[in-house]
């Protein structure tokens, strides 16, 4: 009896069409550097990235969503525009400085945000893009940032409507920021992202965007082993720099007078 040879076909193997995550993730880095300009690079350069595991305060999962009702935009189109125009959606008074290569895996961006609502003082820091594909992108914060966090920006279909979403998984970085969070900074942070999502929806043509917010305290415990994160605090160094600015200005002025 002759064995029948299997007939070769041109059908690709079952796993040929599988998506790959290989290009979406950044390579591990020990210390950060950036090509972005516009804000102080000292708050980023040479620092390590941190996530909620390395933070001090209670762990929060915050999810902000907005439905792009009345638009024909696909999730992929939305994410492409979100990446390209990311800085333009931030609330007024806050600036995001994208790296030269844009929002791509491994890139590090800078920003300057209002440290206190309405105050003229702005705090600089940055974020590393740890993941980016055509449906989402994710940032991690550096040491010294007020939050030890992951922020994931994504888009998906819900029926016929595209939904934009920001999800933060975060702890405050140190006891000082945790105290400010308890005193209202947590809500201030929420308003920042609610404002961003509303701006995004308006830019996509939504007339009256409705932003949904869901906050879950994932872990009520504080991680006291990370209490020393305070030594990196950009918030504190900014506050000290602001408070001592008049003294430094007077000193430099008197030194200039003596030289004359």
């Amino acid at each position: 009896m002759t064995a029948i040879e299997p007939i070769p076909t041109e059908t690709p193997p079952a796993d040929a069409a599988r998506r790959s995550d290989a290009d979406a993730w950044a390579r591990p880095v020990d210390r950060l550097s950036t090509t972005a300009t516009g804000a102080s690079v000292d708050t980023v350069t040479g620092r390590r990235v941190v996530g909620p595991i390395q933070g001090f305060g209670q762990m929060w999962q915050k999810t902000f969503t907005v439905r792009l009702e009345g638009t024909a935009m696909t999730p992929q189109e939305l994410i492409a525009r979100w990446k390209d125009e990311f800085p333009t959606f931030w609330p007024k008074g806050n600036t995001f400085y994208a790296p030269l290569a844009g929002i791509a895996p491994g890139e590090v961006a800078l920003f300057a945000v209002q440290a206190v609502p309405g105050a003229p003082v702005r705090m600089s820091s940055g974020v590393m893009v740890i993941y980016a594909d055509d449906e989402s992108f994710t940032f991690m914060t550096p040491e010294g940032h007020a939050l030890s966090a992951w922020l994931t920006f994504s888009a998906f279909r819900d029926g016929d409507v595209t939904v934009a979403q920001v999800q933060a998984l975060e702890r405050t970085a140190d006891p000082f920021v945790e105290l400010t969070y308890m005193l209202g900074a947590n809500r201030f942070n929420d308003r920042f992202w609610e404002g961003t999502m509303a701006n995004l929806a308006r830019a996509m043509g939504v007339v009256e965007p409705v932003v949904g917010t869901v906050k879950i305290c994932v872990d009520r415990r504080r991680q006291w082993r990370y209490v020393r994160n305070i030594r990196y605090s950009t918030f504190i160094s900014t506050a000290i720099g602001t408070m001592t600015a008049p003294v430094r200005w007077l000193r430099s002025r008197s030194a200039g007078t003596r030289e004359e």
């Binding site: 796993d15 995550d21 999962q61 449906e135 989402s136 994931t152 994932v218």
Partner: peptide
């Protein structure tokens, strides 16, 4: 495991 995005890594943290 064949594919993991940032949503998947978030699940590991929680």
């Amino acid at each position: 495991l064949e594919y993991m995005n940032s949503g998947g890594i978030g699940l590991l943290v929680t």
